[in-house]
């Protein structure tokens, strides 16, 4: 199904998509998208949505299955509380992407904004993953409770990542390609070298990632990664008295 979204409000457009999904439609191509919010929000089926243009905030919020490809930049709140599915963005995105995300993949070609992956969590087999090819703003992985985040810095911009990386982190793992100065780190984070298992884990995801965006896999892997994990699963356990 192809929708020309020029000048269309998100409400009728998303309703059209929901109705078409309910009647069995599997593929959507949305042209002339310009800031329409909530595309794919709450969809539970394994449909594919290709977006030509820049979608608005909360793309794929509460989404549970679809694959969304954005042939432009994204905005804020992508994959908000997403449960399953894939979002692939051929550009940069804004702030608080992957908030409370609990499953699925979020692959961003370029830079990501502030508070990426905040309170991302995992449950058994549901392990969410965010990969960004460029740089990230402050509070990367704040309150992170699970899942995997990989930041590549392929465009060579600096700083690679903003301040307070992993503040309040109490689960999950981050891999950052390059050196992270200690003063950028939150105080709940521990810096480690990659083990063989780590390398194996990230190469699986990065192979797929490189295929989407045409990066050279070997070049990506030739960089030195820093692994960040929480110091404790219970960072605030000792602060209280009964």
């Amino acid at each position: 199904m192809r929708i020309d979204a020029k000048g269309m409000h998100y409400r009728p457009m998303n309703k059209m998509i929901r109705d078409a999904v309910a009647s069995g439609q599997k593929e959507f191509e949305l042209d002339n998208i310009g800031g329409q919010r909530y595309i794919g929000a709450g969809l539970n089926e394994n449909v594919k949505i290709t977006i030509n243009g820049t979608p608005g905030n909360d793309l794929g919020a509460f989404m549970n299955g679809p694959k969304i490809i954005v042939n432009a930049n994204g905005q804020d709140g992508l994959a908000n509380t997403m449960n399953a599915g894939e979002i692939i963005v051929h550009g940069n995105v804004g702030d608080i992407i992957g908030y409370g995300m609990r499953g699925g993949k979020l692959y961003i070609k370029g830079d990501v904004g502030y508070r990426v992956g905040i309170h991302m969590k995992e449950y058994k087999k549901q392990v969410p993953i965010i990969i960004a090819g460029g740089t990230a703003g402050d509070f990367f992985g704040e309150y992170m409770a699970g899942g995997i985040m990989i930041l590549l810095g392929m465009n060579g911009k600096s700083p690679l990542v903003g301040d307070y990386v992993g503040t309040g982190m109490h689960g999950g793992v981050m891999y950052i390609r390059g050196k992270v100065d200690p003063y950028h780190l939150g105080k709940e984070v521990n810096c480690l070298e990659l083990s063989e298992e780590d390398t194996k884990l990230i190469s699986g995801y990065l192979k797929e990632y490189c295929e989407y965006f045409g990066f050279d896999f070997n070049e990506v892997m030739s960089g030195k990664f820093t692994k960040l994990v929480p110091l404790s699963l219970r960072p605030y356990g000792n602060m209280y008295v009964y």
């Binding site: 608080i96 609990r102 309170h119 969590k121 409770a145 699970g146 309040g168 109490h170 219970r234 960072p235």
Partner: peptide
């Protein structure tokens, strides 16, 4: 939908 034994922390604000 979080692992056994981890603190369930709700941040003070919704960060969005």
């Amino acid at each position: 939908m979080i692992p056994v034994g981890t603190d369930a922390l709700s941040p003070a604000p919704h960060h969005d």
